[in-house]
Each structure stands twice: as structure tokens, then as C-alpha cells.
Design a protein around this nucleic acid. Structure first.
Length: 420
RNA sequence: GUGGGUGUAGCUCAGUUGGUUAGAGCGCCGGAUUGUGGAUCCGGAGGUCGCGGGUUCGAAACCCGUCAUCCACCCCA
């Protein structure tokens, strides 16, 4: 038997209603906030991701699905959505259009990781990018959108945390200060963090190991090394969130895993998720457009993990059965089944959801099918009815039956499905 | 990449200290008199016990390997 790939899942019909709810909610809020949908390719040249995400990040170093095209160029299945969106923005000269350009996207992403709860190799994200505004209110707008989507879906136990990463120059001031402190306390750090002191000291602050957390409790804070400009920008974000009532927590340890972030970063986690507890996260990335060869353009964005949202939603699954709007056609006997087929088509053309089971040859088995499918009505057409040019319409709840004429079928049945 | 748990019917799982035709519930198909569903009763289909070796008179069970899957580390949405 040919099986699916490790970490790549089928979303079966029982789950798709939940997915549609998530997607439609996200789309609706994005549009309300003035974002437009963009659809970018699922694969790009490898250098795009290496340059944007950061060559020394885990994603680029060991998680990308990279392969050679027939002409030898290196291509990669997108591990996230920002790079492609920014590439499209540059390539199509969208900065020549009225700014800001605000996009949202939805679709599969690919990362070669070891699968676990809430982590797959093909997973799905909804994301937004707001390009061209360097006002704190743009950050607030994006965070608000993120929060509203999650609130609308009533996802449980959420916390929004934000932090100020400052400008690149600020971090360069802070880095040696932090490294000096960490070197004094190396013995207290976990093995991983000892290595990180060299490679990526900021991430030590984000370590979950209790010893590391204790050791860095008294560490000098990035906030104290920030320029006046960075501070006042962040103050604007915080004030904006306050004024529109978005609840957040400051977390000076919050460090994102992608290199392109600066200033505002944020993350929403849920305690109902397991180890992979981040539902959505994002931040500002003012330098990225230029890094990728475009005009200097400030930007903010976020991404939401759709699988993780679906996991949380399943606890309060609001799946409605479609049966309440269905007519089941029970056509049996040689003439009856032929007539049933045309009745099916007629109702469908009239906009009514009509189904039948072509394996059923007896009225009894038809009714069992109709019941199992949860159909609201069954239209019975045996040979007798077919010769008379009529059918019996049975209400499956009340068992009331009435004759209907086959010549006026859709006209007679349509009113039954009007909203009361 | 590292660690731990689990692999028996479509699904959820039993299966005694190794013992002969491997079970249940749900689901599926059919029947309970001729054209009327759900309940009940009856019957039926469906399993290389993940795979490959080994121990043994005998393995679903014990041992080794392997694969898959789940969870965790790591990392991230």
C-alpha cells in the first residue's frame, strides 16, 4: 500500500467544516482590516529563503525541502509565507502603488522537522503582511487583527506577549553586554545555551530550561540598551494596544527565530496545546524588503498556525450536518429509477441539495440510506408513481407524506427550503 | 538529529504463566412475507496479529533487528 509521507496529513471530510470555519473567519477579519488576498507560489529559488529567514537559522540550516530543478537551479518548498510575499511585492513594483500594501495569504508550508503534536512537515498558515508603514499604529492594527481572529473563534487559554527587539544597531550594543554576563554564568547554563552564547546569545533568554531561566533572571535587559527612538516607537505600540483594549503581557525574553524581525515582536500561545504552544506570532521587519533587493520599505506581519487552531477548535466542534437541507431521491424499479435520475438532476438544477444511493434497489434500503444521511425529505418514486407522473414526498421527521407532481417538482419543493 | 511509549478487523480495544479454528463493541452488508427509515433480534463479510529474523514441539505473546506512528527534546506557526 502506498502511504502518505511522514508528517503530511490528509484532512478528511469530517474535519473540513472546521477548517473552512477557520479560513473563513480569518479571511473575513483580514478583509475588514483592509488586507487583500495574495497568492504566491509554493516553491521559490532557495536563495530567497536563505537571504530572508537567515542563513544560520534552524529553518534554513536543516529544515528546508530543497531540490534541484531540471536545469540545476536550487529550489525550495516554502517554509513560511513572508519571503514569497515580499519577493512578489518587489518584483511587481508594488511600492509604486499607493502604500501601504496590505496582503494576507493562506496555504501550505513545508519544514522537515520531526512530527509531534501540533507540528507537521506540511502545515498550513494564515498570514498577513503590511508593507509601507512605519507607524506604531500599523503594528497595533496587525496585532489587533491577529487577536480578533482568535477571539472570534473562541479559542481557549490564549496569551498575547509582546517585546521590543529594537533596531539592529540596538542589538549590536546589547549583544556584547549580554555575552559578558552569560560568560560569567556559563556553568549555570544548559549545554545548548553554552553553545548559544557564541552563536545566538539572545536565544538564551528564550530557553525553557529552568536553570537557564534562573541564570538569566538577573541578566542585563535588552530594554536597557535600546535607543530613544526604539523606545518611543514601542511606547506607541503599547499605548495603541491599550487604547483599543487588546490584552497583552510584556515579555522581555521573547525572541523570534527568524532573523528579519526588529522592534515589535509578538506571540500568542495557548496552554491547551501541548509543547508546541505558539498559535500565532509575528513582528516588524523594516529591513527585509531592502535585504531582498527592493526599496527600503518598513513592514509588519504575522502568521497563524492553522493546524494548531484546528486542534483547539475541535474541543468545541460546531460541525453542522448538511442533512437538514437535503432531499433524498428513492427511485426503484426499472421505470422508477430512471425517473429518479431525472428528478435528481432537476432538483439540483433548481439549487436544491439532492442525493441518492444508486446501490439501493428496494424502498426499504433507500429509506435506510436517507435516514443515515440525515436527509430532511425523501422523494419516493416507484414504478407506480412513475407511470402516474407523480412522486411521494416524505418528511423524515414527521413521517407525513404527500403526493407531488413530477411536472412541477422543483417548483413545489423549493418553498420547503426557504428559511422560516 | 536524540529520547520514551505504542503497533491485533474500517474505528476503539481485549487476548491469562507461550497451547491448537485470534475475539468484543461500534461501523459495514443482508434478513425478520409481498413498496416505508431509526429500535430489537438473527445472519454475513472483513485480520499476512506492522515487517524480517531468532528461541521453542508450539509465538499475537519471549529475544534481536527494522519500519511506522504518537509524545517529548530541539525548533517553531
Amino acid at each position: 500500500m502506498i502511504k502518505g509521507i511522514k508528517g503530511v496529513k490528509d484532512i478528511l471530510p469530517e474535519e473540513t467544516p472546521r477548517w473552512r470555519l477557520i479560513e473563513e473567519t480569518a479571511r473575513q477579519w483580514a478583509v475588514r482590516y483592509g488586507f487583500q488576498e495574495i497568492r504566491v507560489p509554493i516553491f521559490e529559488v532557495t536563495t530567497l529563503f536563505a537571504r530572508s529567514i537567515g542563513a544560520s537559522t534552524d529553518i534554513v540550516e536543516k529544515e528546508m525541502y530543497t531540490f534541484q530543478d531540471r536545469d540545476g537551479t536550487s529550489l525550495t518548498l516554502r517554509p513560511e509565507g513572508t519571503a514569497g510575499t515580499v519577493r512578489a511585492f518587489i518584483e511587481h513594483n508594488r511600492n509604486a502603488d499607493p502604500l501601504p500594501q496590505k496582503y494576507f495569504y493562506m496555504g501550505p508550508m513545508f519544514r522537515h522537522e520531526r512530527p509531534q503534536a501540533g507540528r507537521l512537515r506540511q502545515f498550513h498558515q494564515f498570514g498577513v503582511e503590511s508593507l509601507g508603514t512605519s507607524d506604531p499604529r500599523a503594528d497595533v492594527e496587525v496585532i489587533a487583527l491577529l487577536w480578533r481572529v482568535l477571539m472570534d473563534l473562541k479559542l481557549p487559554a490564549l496569551t498575547l506577549e509582546i517585546n521590543n527587539l529594537g533596531y539592529t544597531a540596538d542589538r549590536e550594543v546589547y549583544r556584547p553586554v549580554l555575552v559578558a554576563y552569560l560568560t560569567q554564568h556559563v556553568e549555570a547554563l544548559c549545554g545548548n545555551c553554552r553553545r548559544r552564547v557564541e552563536t545566538n546569545p539572545l536565544r538564551v533568554l528564550d530557553c525553557k530550561v529552568p536553570e537557564c531561566r534562573a541564570a538569566t533572571e538577573a541578566a542585563p535587559r535588552l530594554a536597557d540598551s535600546l535607543s530613544e527612538q526604539a523606545r518611543s516607537y514601542f511606547a506607541g505600540v503599547v499605548a495603541g494596544l491599550d487604547s483599543i483594549g487588546i490584552p497583552y503581557r510584556l515579555n522581555h525574553r521573547l525572541v523570534r527565530g527568524l532573523d528579519y524581525y526588529c522592534l515589535t515582536t509578538f506571540e500568542v500561545t495557548s496552554t491547551s496545546l501541548g509543547a508546541q504552544n505558539a498559535v500565532g506570532a509575528g513582528g516588524r521587519y523594516d529591513a527585509l524588503v531592502e535585504t531582498l533587493g527592493g526599496p527600503s520599505t518598513p513592514a509588519v506581519g504575522f502568521a497563524l498556525g492553522l493546524e494548531r487552531m484546528a486542534m483547539m477548535l475541535s474541543e468545541t466542534a460546531p460541525v453542522a450536518s448538511p442533512g437538514s437541507t437535503t432531499v433524498y431521491i428513492a427511485g426503484f424499479g426499472s421505470l422508477g429509477s430512471a425517473t429518479g435520475l431525472s428528478a435528481l438532476e432537476e432538483l439540483r438544477l433548481a439549487g436544491i441539495r439532492a442525493v441518492s444511493d444508486f446501490r439501493s434497489g428496494t424502498l426499504k434500503s433507500h429509506l435506510r440510506q436517507a435516514d443515515r444521511l440525515g436527509s430532511r425529505f425523501t422523494l419516493i418514486i416507484g414504478d407506480d408513481e412513475a407511470t402516474k407522473g407523480t412522486a411521494i414526498l416524505r418528511d423524515m421527521n414527521t413521517k407525513a407524506q404527500q403526493d407531488v407532481s413530477l411536472t412541477s417538482l422543483s417548483r413545489d419543493i423549493s418553498p420547503l427550503f426557504r428559511a422560516p
